[in-house]
């Protein structure tokens, strides 16, 4: 009960102080998000998914950073850690260490307390729809690029090999793909206002 009333920020603070109930509470709040995300990266392999989740929470538990809310929200931060760990675990052989250095200090905190509610589900659905809609605006090779890069963790030179294209082509494809997606989010979602 006491933990339930803590904000995420307070929980992180307690975790840094090695307070186990805080970690358990954070698990209760975010396990579904982290598990679902890991499951996708592990392509439905439940053993690997479990391994990823274990390492994510171990990382949280062993973090040395003192908490200082600055940038980035907790869910995003957790997903970034999860993605790094998942890609490291699944594609250990190809990956270099410390893909994206992240510190607790880089995290912006949202004053929130409750984990699974329905708004959350509504929001995720809405966001998922938007991403899928945005992806429909990409060409086939652009979609493949995002999947290989984001979800499978291949490097650009590996992708160049897979696609049998020069690295330069893949680099400019990346540039265009990101811009296209970003512009979609800027323009199309803004257009809802007029679309009624």
């Amino acid at each position: 009960m006491a933990m339930k009333s803590k904000t995420d920020e307070e929980l992180i603070g307690l975790i840094v102080q090695k307070h186990r109930p805080a970690l358990e509470e954070l698990y209760d709040r975010y396990a579904k998000l982290i598990y679902s995300f890991s499951y996708k990266i592990a392509k439905g392999d439940t053993d690997k998914t479990k391994e990823i989740v274990q390492h994510v929470f171990l990382r949280l538990w062993t973090t040395k950073s003192t908490y200082n809310p600055a940038k980035g929200q907790l869910a995003n931060w957790l997903l970034t850690i999860t993605r790094n760990i998942a890609i490291d675990l699944i594609r250990k052989e190809q990956k270099h260490n410390g893909t994206i250095p992240l510190e607790l200090d880089d995290m912006l905190h949202i004053q929130g307390q409750q984990s699974e509610d329905v708004l959350q589900q509504v929001s995720r659905n809405l966001l998922k729809q938007q991403i899928q809609e945005a992806k429909r605006h990409l060409s086939e090779p652009q979609q493949r690029l995002i999947n290989l890069l984001y979800w499978e963790g291949y490097s650009l030179s590996e992708i160049a090999e897979i696609e049998k294209k020069p690295l330069g082509t893949i680099k400019s494809r990346l540039h265009q793909t990101l811009k296209k997606l970003r512009n979609y989010f800027n323009e199309e979602t803004g257009g809802v206002r007029h679309g009624k």
Binding site: A75, I110, G112, Q121, V122, S123, L127
Partner: peptide, 12 residues
């Protein structure tokens, strides 16, 4: 919309 989304995501 993002505010709504994020609020949902963090479970405000």
């Amino acid at each position: 919309v993002a505010v709504v989304l994020v609020i949902g995501l963090v479970g405000l």
